[in-house]
């Protein structure tokens, strides 16, 4: 197989440049700890009830001092907890999800609320639901024999009809923006 010498030189140069870039990425990742942000928020799935944030009476819809709405929910075989929530339409909502066992997915049909819930991590989605109505929350990541029955309900009501649940100010839940 004959390769033109000039072509060969260019090939060496190209391989060298690729090697340089890969090297820089590797050195940054391994020695300087510079990584693409990915799943920065972790949680121990085996002891959710002991964590401050996903403690049983801290779940559901909460409004903080500045009016931001956060919804904390737990997915577990086979349901989402709490089973029913009411949220306002046309408002920015931050969902924070954790799984207590295997991989789950959560999906509100006809909306952007869709994420995979990986055990060991917190999945956070911020979205706005424009249309009031009753929506199901479905598990779309196959999770075992009861996967079909894993769903709960969301009522989206018009902004002016929605009343913030009277609750103690929320605990935990760092914002990772």
């Amino acid at each position: 197989m004959h390769i033109d010498p000039l072509e060969k030189k260019w090939a060496y140069a190209a391989v060298g440049i690729a090697g340089l870039f890969v090297g820089i990425i590797l050195i940054d990742a391994l020695f300087h700890g510079i990584n693409a942000p990915s799943h920065v928020e972790t949680i121990d799935s085996a002891s959710l009830h002991l964590s401050e944030e996903f403690d049983e009476d801290n779940l559901g819809v909460q409004v903080d001092e500045s009016g931001n709405i956060t919804i904390r929910m737990v997915a577990g075989r086979y349901g989402f907890y709490p089973k029913h929530i009411t949220v306002p339409a046309d408002t920015s909502l931050t969902f924070r999800w954790v799984s207590m066992d295997v991989l789950h997915g959560v999906h509100m049909p006809m909306t952007n609320m869709s994420t995979m819930i990986v055990p060991g991590y917190v999945a956070q989605v911020t979205t706005t639901l424009p249309k009031p109505g009753e929506y199901p929350l479905l598990c779309n990541e196959y999770c075992g024999i009861g996967h079909d029955h894993m769903w709960s309900n969301v009522s989206v009501v018009a902004k002016e009809h929605w009343a913030a649940p009277g609750k103690a100010p929320s605990k935990g839940g760092k914002d990772n923006d």
Binding site: P109, M110, P136, N140, Y142, H147
Partner: peptide, 16 residues
């Protein structure tokens, strides 16, 4: 799919 039916379910409720 647009109507939201997930994959890998063995049955579904009427009315969706």
């Amino acid at each position: 799919g647009f109507l939201g039916m997930p994959r890998r379910v063995y049955t579904y409720q009427a009315g969706m």
